[in-house]
């Protein structure tokens, strides 16, 4: 507590996350380190392994108002077997949908290793009355969600009501029961890496099993420095409390190259222990096809045609 107060004289976030130290973040240094990690060259055998890993940690996502049961069923089919022509392609980690479609996904993914994830808690703003948000979480879990993605109350966080933001996450964690809780920080709205680091620590101390970058509903989503910033917070959390928290990067991840940049960032920052679906996820809707194309290219040396891959 005391060391934290020393580091955080004015924010008051200290009270909410007593017992962990929050170190400041230098934006330029962070961005340079992230850029440096993105110059790692991934070739041949490393590339093949990275591509398969990218699939194994993928949360195949559809979060549109126009989502229908049929669309979700098709997505689930792809999640189980991403490439109909190649059984060596592993399943993805989870399918992520709105609560109303959870029963559809749960049925489609029954007896599969693919988890059902649901956004809940007034996604994407998180400003519904708390009781409704908690109710939505409970409903999604009851309907078969293994994982629940909620948002940080940015209204509370950005106005300095850290205790409120903390309490809501803690309540959401309770509402989840045995389901895993992912807390979306919506980093694009937080204004600085310092804030991202604070929000990360707050969410982790409040009970998040994963911290997640973005809803995908605003212009700014996951970026390499944001991923690095959150990975460093997770590392500090593990060091200071022994608690291991996962990292989910979401929004704007469309290419295999972006995916392995993130693998490098997480792998070099947190170690290989984090490069598994239990601790790392890539939330994406259009990434899968590019990964499959790259995988195929690596196999036979030919560049692929985008039209040959599923549009779902």
């Amino acid at each position: 507590m005391s060391d934290l107060l020393a580091a955080e004289p004015s924010t008051g976030v200290a009270d909410a996350v007593a017992g962990v130290r929050i170190t400041p973040v230098d934006a330029v240094g962070l961005e340079q380190r992230a850029a440096g990690l993105c110059t790692r060259s991934i070739k041949t055998s490393s590339k093949a392994a990275a591509l398969d890993l990218s699939i194994r940690v993928m949360d195949l996502t559809t979060l549109e108002g126009a989502d229908t049961p049929e669309r979700v069923q098709a997505l689930c089919a792809r999640a189980r077997r991403p490439d109909a022509a190649d059984s060596s392609v592993p399943s993805v980690a989870a399918v992520c949908v709105y609560p109303e479609l959870v029963p559809v996904a749960a049925e489609a993914l029954a007896d599969s290793p693919v988890a059902v994830a649901s956004v809940a808690g007034g996604f994407p703003a998180g400003l519904a009355p708390l009781e409704f948000r908690l109710g939505e979480i409970g409903w999604a879990v009851a309907a078969g969600a293994d994982e629940v993605d909620i948002v940080l109350n940015r209204s509370a966080f950005l106005s300095g009501r850290y205790q409120k933001a903390y309490d809501e996450i803690a309540a959401a964690k309770q509402a989840c029961g045995s389901a895993h809780l992912k807390v979306i920080l919506e980093t694009g709205e937080l204004g600085s890496y310092d804030q991202i680091r604070r929000a990360s620590m707050l969410a982790m101390v409040a009970g998040a099993d994963f911290i997640k970058t973005s809803t995908g509903k605003i212009g700014v989503a996951a970026t390499p420095p944001t991923a690095l910033c959150m990975a460093e917070a997770i590392r500090d959390m593990a060091e200071q409390t022994g608690k291991t928290v996962g990292l989910k990067l979401a929004g704007g991840i469309r290419t295999a190259k972006q995916a392995w940049h993130y693998l490098v960032i997480v792998g070099e920052t947190l170690g290989g222990g984090w490069l598994a679906p239990e601790r790392f996820r890539l939330g994406a809707s259009s990434l899968l096809n590019d990964v499959l194309m790259q995988r195929s290219k690596l196999g036979d040396g030919r560049y692929q045609r985008r039209e040959d891959y599923s549009v779902d």
Binding site: S46, A50, A238, L270
Partner: peptide, 15 residues
């Protein structure tokens, strides 16, 4: 940092 259950991120030679 523990590595159990994870993935050993090796970089193949990239000369």
């Amino acid at each position: 940092m523990e590595r159990a259950g994870g993935f050993n991120l090796e970089y193949a030679p990239a000369p």
